[in-house]
């Protein structure tokens, strides 16, 4: 699993005393993507944030629900409740990196990474903002760790945990790894059996890592384009 020290260093740097683990995972990748592009520790105007996750902060959500079962309603922790909100991590990124722009959290179980990239493309092309911090994240908790045994047909392999952040821009800037395009393929007939390769949840985070890997691989070849379908 992700080392506690790595998350602790991010929490200490940005004084995230009460942030939950999910937020720290999101922050670790988002901070690094901005630093990689040369925007570290400075306000980024006209920048949007899109955070995509199939399960979101479910560790915190269940912690809050467990508290509701164990304690009277007026004695549960408001801090746990506020972090159980799906958009909390995006707000932390906006606040810590002083990013001003639209802030969106996406969730879903099919083609989530593609949806997130496509939404980023729409935001940039429509002039809604000049940059997008796009984060794909998945945190493992009791539910997600148990899924292969609870639903072996849908989740036949162990889920991945991690986070990938891309700083996307409408014009070349920063490291300028590559350009990226999204095109939705029209589906005819039945979808292929996705379970034969991997669980859809893993497809999401795996897809995010693959996009980052392709971008890194293309950094030595300027002018290349990654096409996501």
């Amino acid at each position: 699993s992700i080392s506690k020290d790595a998350l602790l260093s991010v929490k200490n740097k940005y004084d995230l005393r009460r942030a939950d683990r999910y937020t720290a995972i999101v922050m670790a990748s988002a901070v690094q993507a901005c630093a990689d592009a040369g925007f570290a520790d400075c306000a980024m105007a006209d920048t949007g944030i899109i955070i995509a996750s199939s399960f979101g902060p479910h560790r915190t959500t269940f912690a809050f629900l467990n508290d509701i079962l164990d304690y009277p309603e007026d004695q549960v922790l408001p801090t746990t409740f506020s972090h159980s909100v799906h958009n909390a991590a995006a707000s932390y990124v906006a606040s810590s990196l002083q990013i001003r722009g639209p802030t969106i959290s996406l969730t879903g179980f099919e083609d989530l990474w593609f949806d997130a990239l496509e939404l980023s493309d729409v935001f940039l092309n429509s002039g809604c903002c000049q940059r997008i911090v796009l984060v794909g994240v998945e945190e493992l908790a009791l539910l997600t760790q148990s899924l292969p045994s609870i639903l072996p047909d849908s989740f036949h392999c162990r889920l991945l945990e991690g986070s990938v952040a891309l700083l996307l821009s409408s014009t070349p800037e920063g490291k300028n790894y590559t350009s990226i395009t999204c095109s939705r393929r029209s589906s005819c007939g039945e979808k292929p059996d996705r379970h034969s390769s991997c669980a859809t949840a893993n497809d999401f985070l795996g897809g995010a890592f693959q996009t980052a890997l392709k971008a890194l691989a293309s950094s030595n070849q300027p002018g290349t384009t990654i096409s996501i379908g």
């Binding site: 992700i2 990748s29 690094q32 493309d121 986070s163 891309l166 700083l167 590559t178």
Partner: peptide, 19 residues
Amino acid sequence: MFISGIGAISASGIGTENL
């Protein structure tokens, strides 16, 4: 659109060198 920066964290740590 263009990819201007990359960040990642997984079991292998923070940073693109871990990808």
